[in-house]
């Protein structure tokens, strides 16, 4: 992916040299046409066309934001309810992610989701121990994490 971005920059500079115009506009024009060329020649690269990864990163960012807002509303409800009826607990979650940075991002996302906070990552990077504010909906939380976050992170690293 990094290679494709670098190549796109390189093509943009070649465009600037060819048109003998060293302005920002020329750079963006060259970047656009270079992107088209890379898209046309995408089957010669080992990885897929890099704009898809960029879109996946943007999606992940929006998931981050929306989860942060939802988490805050959930915490607000718990704090301001007249009685403390929650049942906290720690549960284990097995993850399929392997690389360190993926697990870091997953842990940060879980920390920002409603009612969960990562306590520890096991030594073999396979299990996350999560403290939940309300253990009743653990299965639901598990499914949410599996379906939305892991999928989004995998989409980025593919």
């Amino acid at each position: 992916m990094a290679f494709q971005i670098l190549l796109n920059f390189f093509l943009a500079f070649i465009w600037m040299f060819l048109s003998n115009d060293y302005s920002t506009l020329a750079f963006f024009k060259g970047y656009f046409f270079g992107g088209l060329i890379i898209f046309a020649l995408r089957r010669f690269f080992a990885h897929r066309f890099y704009l898809l990864n960029v879109i996946a990163v943007i999606k992940l960012f929006f998931i981050f934001c929306s989860e942060l807002v939802k988490a805050n509303i959930a915490v607000l409800k718990v704090i301001l309810s007249p009685k403390l009826t929650m049942r906290p607990g720690i549960f284990a979650l097995e993850t399929e992610l392997e690389k360190d940075w993926e697990i870091t991002i997953l842990a940060n996302l879980i920390t920002l989701t409603p009612g969960t906070l990562v306590l520890e990552v096991s030594e073999d990077n396979k299990i996350l121990y999560i403290h939940a504010m309300d253990i009743d909906d653990v299965e639901q939380a598990r499914l949410d994490i599996k379906n939305s976050f892991e999928k989004a992170i995998k989409e980025v690293s593919r």
Partner: peptide, 19 residues
């Protein structure tokens, strides 16, 4: 308010780190 009101370190941390 959450830091004052919630019962233990862990739940307090929920409130402090999110809100």
């Amino acid at each position: 308010i959450g830091v004052v009101r919630l019962p233990d370190t862990y739940t307090r941390n929920h409130a402090a780190s999110k809100s």
